[in-house]
């Protein structure tokens, strides 16, 4: 595969197997002696570390800037509140300014428009960033602090760790909202993992709409093949969407998952599925 390729593993529905696919894919790429990174961008509930069992050698707190108002300097003009699109700062007469840190998006607008230079920034913890090694896989994971809603800011920080000359496998959060958009931005390829159920299909359609809107090349992987119905395959056929992997509905895979084990370690017969996936994505990237 091309070095510097950024592959995002996403899905509309949760629990379809993003982490299973991402971790095992990173593992087989490392076995091909390619430089590979696994980045867990599912920062609200990261779980890649359970399977990859990395040794973390660097852990840092991630902070964002929020406004800190000096009421002595405030002239009560209200410009800070007018520019804020999120209601995170509001000036209520007689030099009283309230801030709502959890609503702030750290744009810095209030600080710039303040004519009396009364607003400085202070740092707010939003989570942690862990970097390490899992075998030959370079491992990065973000973990959002409980109560924080600044998911995209932490995801951005995780993605800043993408290294040159590495293939980056990004484990995305589920859904189609801001955290997913932040994760998929600038990806070279998106793999949408789904399952052959009505729920899987419904949420796949949403994810397809999102990747098309973002103009990103993508393909589909179907997990738990053999259960449910054929509607996902019919949909992909009608929409001319390539299915690049089918993983069987095998109880042993679920058992390996429940034990926090890598499929390709416990069930080596599946290794060829992941090598096939790797080759299919490589081919798609060349198109």
């Amino acid at each position: 595969m091309e070095k510097n390729a950024v592959i995002a593993i996403a899905s509309g529905k949760g629990g379809t197997g993003k982490t299973t696919v991402a971790a095992n894919l990173a593992w087989v790429i490392a076995e091909q002696e390619e430089a590979v990174q696994y980045l867990d961008c599912d920062v609200e509930e990261p779980n890649g570390h359970i399977f990859l069992k990395p040794k973390i050698n660097q852990s840092e707190k991630v902070k964002v800037a929020v406004p800190d108002v000096d009421l002595e300097k405030c002239i009560g003009c209200g410009k800070c509140g007018q520019i804020c699109q999120y209601g995170a700062i509001v000036s209520i007469k007689e030099k009283n300014v309230l801030t709502f840190e959890q609503l702030c998006h750290s744009c810095g607008g209030c600080m710039r428009v303040c004519p009396s230079n009364a607003i400085k920034s202070k740092m707010l913890d939003i989570g942690t960033l862990d970097c390490g090694k899992a075998g030959n896989v370079d491992f990065v994971s973000g973990k959002l602090q409980i109560g924080s809603v600044r998911t995209p800011a932490l995801i951005k920080k995780v993605k800043e760790q993408i290294k040159e000359n590495y293939i980056a496998i990004i484990d995305a959060p589920p859904g189609t909202s801001c955290p997913v958009v932040e994760t998929l931005k600038e990806a070279d390829f998106v793999l949408l993992v789904t399952e052959p159920t009505p729920f899987g299909l419904n949420d796949l359609k949403l994810a397809v709409d999102l990747t098309r809107e973002m103009r990103l090349p993508f393909a589909v992987a179907i997990n738990r093949c053999g259960m449910g119905d054929n509607k996902v395959e019919e949909y992909c056929q009608n929409e001319e969407i390539k299915i690049v992997m089918k993983l069987a509905d095998d109880r042993r895979i679920a058992e390996a998952y429940s034990d926090g084990e890598m499929i390709i370690d416990v069930l080596p017969e599946y290794k060829k599925s992941f090598i096939g996936l790797y080759e299919n994505i490589s081919r798609k990237l060349k198109e």
Binding site: C84, Y86, I92, L103
Partner: peptide, 15 residues
């Protein structure tokens, strides 16, 4: 239709 902070902005309107 505010994406967020509707309570704060509406309070400001009332104030």
């Amino acid at each position: 239709q505010a994406s967020g902070g509707a309570g704060i902005s509406s309070a400001k309107v009332v104030i």
